[in-house]
């Protein structure tokens, strides 16, 4: 979905990005003192990402795929700045919105309206912009009758509808999505997909993690297959799906 006449600029540039996780198994002071000196035995060290280098051009929809634990979500979080890489550099330009979990900033005791403002601010909208988009957000979510109810009384469907509606109104250049593309009932799912296609037409970059080969095939124009933290394939979608299947067999 790249634009024809203008050369698409690179919006995300990762160079040799590596991420090491150290997982300690005990947390309290007592346990630390008791295990002092032996504490290395209680550490687990593994590389979630190893030397990942890739450029992402504006307007592409790129799918990050791989088996569980292959590092795709970690890569998404590093791109989002939520976790820092140990090695390598990551550069980015343009406004970014991360949809790693719908309604991550929702507070159950606040009303839908208050949560719209809070969540929009978390995703980077100003108060004024939120006021501007407010009606459009509520219309998209189709829960106008409940907008002044505390969200703890919402059904899970209403919750994700509102969260998704906010997220798509943030006007990002880069959208990071982790398995949350299709939510709610079928008509709403269609609406979500239509919105994503609109995003693609508008030249927004979408980076998403998914296990659904079908979704990847219908949306992406580029696929990156990860295995054990390394990029094993980077290219067009159809071969990407084959490479993903191969990586499943190879592990």
């Amino acid at each position: 979905m790249t634009t024809a006449s203008v050369e698409a600029p690179v919006v995300v540039r990762a160079q040799g990005v590596s991420k090491r996780f150290v997982i300690r198994k005990e947390k309290s002071l007592k346990e630390r003192i008791v295990n002092f000196g032996r504490s290395n035995l209680h550490k687990e060290d593994f590389w979630a990402l190893r030397d990942v280098t890739l450029d992402i051009e504006a307007g592409t929809t790129i799918g990050l795929v791989g088996a569980n634990g292959s590092g795709k979500s970690t890569l998404l979080k590093v791109i989002g700045g939520i976790i820092q890489a140990n090695e390598g550099t990551l550069e980015r330009r343009g406004r970014m919105a991360a949809l790693l979990e719908l309604g991550a900033g929702f507070h159950p005791d606040l009303t839908g309206r208050e949560n719209v403002f809070l969540n929009a601010a978390i995703l980077g909208l100003s108060q004024k912009q939120t006021e501007q988009y407010f009606d459009s957000i509520v219309d998209f979510s189709e829960i106008r009758d409940f907008i002044d109810t505390q969200v703890k009384f919402y059904s899970s469907g209403m919750y994700v509808r509102l969260a998704f509606a906010i997220a798509v109104h943030v006007d990002p250049d880069i959208l990071l999505v982790d398995e949350v593309l299709a939510v709610g009932d079928e008509p709403f799912q269609r609406k979500c997909m239509a919105k994503i296609e609109e995003f693609q037409r508008e030249g927004r970059t979408i980076i998403f993690v998914s296990h659904s080969a079908e979704q990847i095939q219908s949306l992406c124009d580029r696929v990156v297959v990860l295995s054990h933290g390394k990029v094993v394939y980077d290219g067009p979608t159809d071969e990407g799906i084959d490479a993903l299947r191969a990586s499943f067999e190879g592990r």
Partner: peptide, 24 residues
Amino acid sequence: MSVAQERAQRLAALPFERIGRPVS
């Protein structure tokens, strides 16, 4: 010019930002 092309032009003019604060 389409929305997508405008966006691409605007993005091309933006400088890159390093993600992750320098630790030093």
